[in-house]
Design a protein around this nucleic acid. Structure first.
Lengths: 113, 113
DNA sequence: TGCATATACACCATCATGCATATACAGTCA
DNA sequence: TGACTGTATATGCATGATGGTGTATATGCA
C-alpha cells in the first residue's frame, strides 16, 4: 500500500485516530477503545498513518506510544492555499480574479437528472 | 454514491479537475483534455464534486460550465484548524499543549518491521 | 508465562474506468 | 413551424483493482 496524504485522510477511522492523538500521545490499546474497531485494524491504520508521515512512534517497554507529526498537515495547508482566495475577503491579485469569476456564477442548478 | 469531503478529495483525477477549475470556469470537454480520462469519467467526477459541494454548474446552451464553490474548502480549513497548533509558532493555550507534547517526542523510529 | 502490538490471510464492499447509449440543445433546411 | 443532424453532456453496465475489517497467529518485551 502506498497512501498519499489525501487517501490517508479519506478513511473516517483514521481521522478518528488523528482526533484522538490531537489530545496527546497514546498507546495502541487506548486508540482501540477510542475508535471502536479491532486492535489489528488500529495497528494497520497506524502503519498507514506512519508511512504517510502523520504520526511518530516512541517505544516504551512493550508499549508503543504514537503522537502526531505536523508535516502532512502543513502540506495540506499548502495545498489549500491555492483555493483560499475563494472565500477569503482580501482581494489580492489572485483573489480578485477568483472573486470576479464567482460573481458571474451566482446562478446554480442541479446537474441534469 | 455518497462522498464526504475527504473521500471526494482522495481521488487524484478529481483533484486535477479542481486544479483546472481553479483557473476559472470550464466546460466538460475542456476538462477532458485537462485530466486525460474519458468524457464519461469526467462527467461522473463532476457529479461527485457537485454532490460534495465543490462545484456549481451554469448551463450555457448545450454546454455546462463548471466552477468552484468555496464551501468544502472552507470546511477543510476548519478541520485543519484543530491541528494547526502542531506547526504554527504562536503558542496559545492549545498550541502550547501540543508543543509541549511534541517536545517530549523528539525521538522517532520505524514501526516494528 | 502473559501482555502489547504487528502481520498474514480471506472476505466483502466500494469505486474508477471505458464502452455503449441516452438525453439535451442548437442549427439548418424544408 | 417541424424534421433531421451534429455537438455536448450524462448515465447504465461490466470489469478489474483496491482497501477496510475480523480472525488467527506471530513477534517483542517484561
Amino acid at each position: 500500500m502506498q497512501f498519499d496524504m489525501f487517501q490517508t485522510l479519506a478513511d473516517p477511522t483514521r481521522r478518528r485516530v488523528l482526533d484522538a492523538l490531537s489530545h496527546g500521545e497514546r498507546q495502541v490499546n487506548d486508540l482501540v477503545d477510542d475508535v471502536g474497531i479491532h486492535q489489528s485494524g488500529v495497528s494497520r491504520h497506524l502503519r498507514i498513518l506512519h508511512e504517510a508521515g502523520f504520526v511518530v512512534v516512541r517505544p516504551d517497554g512493550q508499549r508503543r506510544l504514537y503522537s502526531l507529526k505536523p508535516d502532512p498537515f502543513r502540506e495540506l495547508d499548502d495545498w489549500l492555499a491555492k483555493y483560499r482566495g475563494l472565500w477569503e475577503a482580501r482581494l489580492d491579485r489572485f483573489g480578485a480574479a477568483l472573486a470576479t469569476r464567482q460573481a458571474q456564477n451566482e446562478t446554480d442548478e442541479e446537474p441534469a437528472v
